[in-house]
Design a protein around this nucleic acid. Sequence first.
RNA 1: GCGGAUGGCUGGAUGGCCGCACGUCUUCGGGCGUGAGGAAAGUCCGGACUUCAUGAAGCAAAGGCGGCGGGUAACGCCCGCCCGGGGUAACCCGAGGGAAAGCGCAACAGAAAGCAAACUACCUGUCUUCGGACGGGAAAAGGUGAAACGGUGGGGUAAGAGCCCACCACGGUGAUGGUAACAUCACUGGUAUGGCAAGCCCCGCCUGAAGCAAAACCAAGUAGGAACCGCGCGGCCUGUAAGGGUCGGGGCCGCUUUAGCCCCAGCAGGUUCGGGUGGUUGCAAGAGCGCAUCAGUAAUGAUGCGCCCAGAUGAAUGGUCAUCAAGGGCUUCGGCCUGAACAAAAUCCGGCUUACAGGCCAUCCGCGAAA
RNA 2: GCCGCUGUAGCUCAGAUGGUAGAGCACGUCAUUCGUAAUGAUGUGGCCGGAGGUUCAAGUCCUCUCAGCGGCA
Length: 133
Amino acid sequence: MKPSEATQGTLGNAGETPPAVSVCLHVLKKRTDFLACNKGNYRGVKGFVLQARDRQDGTTDIRVGFTCSKKVGNAVARNRAKRRLREVARLTLPQMGRAGWDYVLIGKREVTATRDFQVMLSDMKYALKKVHE
RNA sequence: GCGGAUGGCUGGAUGGCCGCACGUCUUCGGGCGUGAGGAAAGUCCGGACUUCAUGAAGCAAAGGCGGCGGGUAACGCCCGCCCGGGGUAACCCGAGGGAAAGCGCAACAGAAAGCAAACUACCUGUCUUCGGACGGGAAAAGGUGAAACGGUGGGGUAAGAGCCCACCACGGUGAUGGUAACAUCACUGGUAUGGCAAGCCCCGCCUGAAGCAAAACCAAGUAGGAACCGCGCGGCCUGUAAGGGUCGGGGCCGCUUUAGCCCCAGCAGGUUCGGGUGGUUGCAAGAGCGCAUCAGUAAUGAUGCGCCCAGAUGAAUGGUCAUCAAGGGCUUCGGCCUGAACAAAAUCCGGCUUACAGGCCAUCCGCGAAA
RNA sequence: GCCGCUGUAGCUCAGAUGGUAGAGCACGUCAUUCGUAAUGAUGUGGCCGGAGGUUCAAGUCCUCUCAGCGGCA
């Protein structure tokens, strides 16, 4: 993770950053919700895997879940990967997510915890575009 | 200074913007406070706590511990000492009771693997076909093996042997020192007592079982099931009957004894429990931490003062940027690059074990004139 | 979080009471057949998950450790 000149300008602008995840998003807690997303649209990018599904139950909440299994690494690596995924979701989903959809982000070994954060954000935008098609 | 030994500490810092969990205040906009470790890990020991088992005593089984003394709530931990081994030394290592209570094991090799015996060789008697055969003595030498019934030296003898002597080792007795393990000294014995108990076992001591996914409570109330209430209830005696008395059988953690408790036809019904779901409690003031004084060689204890220090449950402590910095690499000596290991609570404590980049401190030892 | 179980040949498993590690399938070679399969004979292949310890000697006994798997509201 090298700080590059290009990324310095876009970060640090407080006006663009959205408020907390919990205000706009709900967190998935049920195992059945995760399994349902597993059958939905699927897109893998270098840093992680995105799954999405239109619930079609009339509600307009955007819900999001995170999965980092033991394959990702030990407890330290799993926590770190999950936090970065949560931050990615917080910065993108309120603008680009669709109402009434569920999203699940799955961490990958080594990559999720170490990939440059700006690249992860553009990965997410690309994956969302593909998953909505 | 170089090379070591031991014990301990630390294991990034500051700030900006956005964000998370809990607590608290609120004018509901938000503000304030706190927020991973020395191992949070492995789950190897010991407890607290909770539930289950009817109480007590004894026995058995199973498992563990094991020099001595002390510390502790307790321990398989810690401290001090003893013994044995290693190291020039500082110091380190040791599952360190019993093999003269008993059973068992030792492949291959070797004459022989634990009662002792005798293959080659040694000494000697008789016979001899001069190759040797048979008998006696003896256990030093040879070879085998991981291990062969004390070791070294001398005397002694036909050859030899604790057969005798000196020293060492070992056993027994006594004295002295020490709380003790044990040590030292004196006398004495003359081979008895080889190894393995992380083989069975013996001796001494300890242990009821499960575990916070334990467990308690609340909400909602359904399929199949269990218990209790009610009707009613084993044999015998007495009684017209109600009732009373007496004798049994079975169950209550492996066994026994004793005390006590429960059950012993069936069922339309009523009540409750239990199974699954969600939530609350358990769940954060404790064998707590820091400092000082005193007792003690120390582990540790006592007293005083001060402090409050995570509490999640698809599981919070993050993302990003800047500055600084120990250290490392390159160097044209201007500087440039890099820039933190092992690893994250899940009921809580005391330990052990394992992982760990780098840095710091203290004490001690050897070499060296000294640094 | 707590409690258990298993690691042996390429694969599936044996291995009592410590003493030269075995079986089946697979693989190689040969025979049989005009040729293949099947069948028969024969051979190769293991530091027994890793590191220490006890012992003369450890797959086996003890301790630590690393993987994999299962159960518990």
